[in-house]
Write a protein that binds this DNA or RNA. Structure first.
Lengths: 193, 193
DNA sequence: AAAAATATTGAATATAAATTCAATGAAATG
DNA sequence: CATTTCATTGAATTTATATTCAATATTTTT
């Protein structure tokens, strides 16, 4: 049973990933249903057999992005700085062999920031609140001396903005060499005297 | 003479800055002429008295962005790392009291990257080639020991992506506290043993 | 293999946004 | 103050794109 359902599900996935790529490289508003249809070699009409509307497609992507966001926030690390190192290393490594991860990063950021995003979709995207999540870890690291001094929120922000900027560049130009994770972790690392 | 011309020029500027803000906060494609018109309290029709089309308006902004991009590439600094420090400090300081600078950063990056950008506009935007510009400075700094080891292009890229990510966040949320420039410069700084 | 269910298409239709335009009002000029 | 020039509007028009739909093909089920 369900051979057809599986195929349909398969096809939906193809559409979703084609849309992800297009939404990221040209922006949601600038992407036409016909662009997506062309990518997956189907007629425009058929797209609506799979997705109710362009907006629903977007919503589903953002929901996927939210679901896929599982940060090992309470990983077992002795020092906070080790957490940043492991996290960043892991992230870059995943981005390298799954370009969709970088794209998803960009999609989520756009969904959060752009005033063009339908409000209910924006709200879904906003549930991923990475900047705030890292604040307690930074505070801990400051106490133990592995993270530099300074406003924890501003530090977290600086770190995340950098990650974000890198993901964007990588999504647009995957041929770019990713930085070594230590370079980025140094944004928050405390230097020894 | 030219009272009218001045007023017209004035009005054009208002439109340009309203468009800059909208293009950045919602994206070029998602911004309607009517959105811009509303911002500057004029009828949609009148917009076309000032600009031939939405695209020309975009082109003019990108051209402005290119013209405004004057990096003191060969500043008088003893060490390369000092250059990065001065540059970053200056940039953040300018962004703080001229929010349009941050917005322009974002506009230019979008124009460069998005496949939705009309090709001739993209080419204008691509003339700002910051990443490559910093490579020789990094190489110099590596020789003199003030910049860390590593692929100079990748280092420049990491630095610029961070700046870019920060500018984007700041453009979207100007209430965010900007990082201290030293945090970001540490991406390229060489640590003493 | 007939019937039912589903996939697919291409051609309408609907919607939305850009662009044009004829008409009107306001300022400058002689 | 009559005339010309420019600013402005609101209502068409055009263009682009999303969405619907009736008709057809394909697959599954009986």
């Amino acid at each position: 049973m369900g051979v057809r359902k599986e195929q349909k599900e398969q096809r939906r996935q193809e559409i979703l990933y084609a849309a992800l790529d297009l939404f990221v490289t040209r922006g949601y508003a600038a992407t036409k249903i016909s662009d997506i249809a062309q990518r997956v070699s189907m007629s425009v009409g058929l797209m609506f057999h799979y997705f109710e509307s362009k907006e629903k497609l977007y919503e589903e992507l953002v929901t996927m992005g939210l679901a896929g966001t599982t940060y090992p926030a309470s990983q077992t690390c002795e020092r906070a700085i080790d957490f940043f190192e492991q996290f960043t290393e892991a992230l870059f490594s995943v981005m390298k062999d799954q370009p969709n991860i970088a794209k998803m990063f960009v999609l989520m950021a756009n969904a959060q920031r752009s005033e063009g995003t339908p409000e209910y979709i924006r709200e879904i995207a906003l549930k991923v609140n990475t900047i705030e999540q890292f604040v307690p870890i930074i505070e801990m690291g400051q106490k133990e001396g592995s993270i530099r001094e300074g406003n924890p929120l501003a530090l977290s922000n600086a770190f995340w903005c950098s990650i974000q900027g890198i993901a964007e560049q990588y999504a647009a130009h995957p041929e770019t060499e990713l930085p070594e994770s230590a370079w980025i972790v140094d944004i928050v690392r405390r230097k020894k005297e």
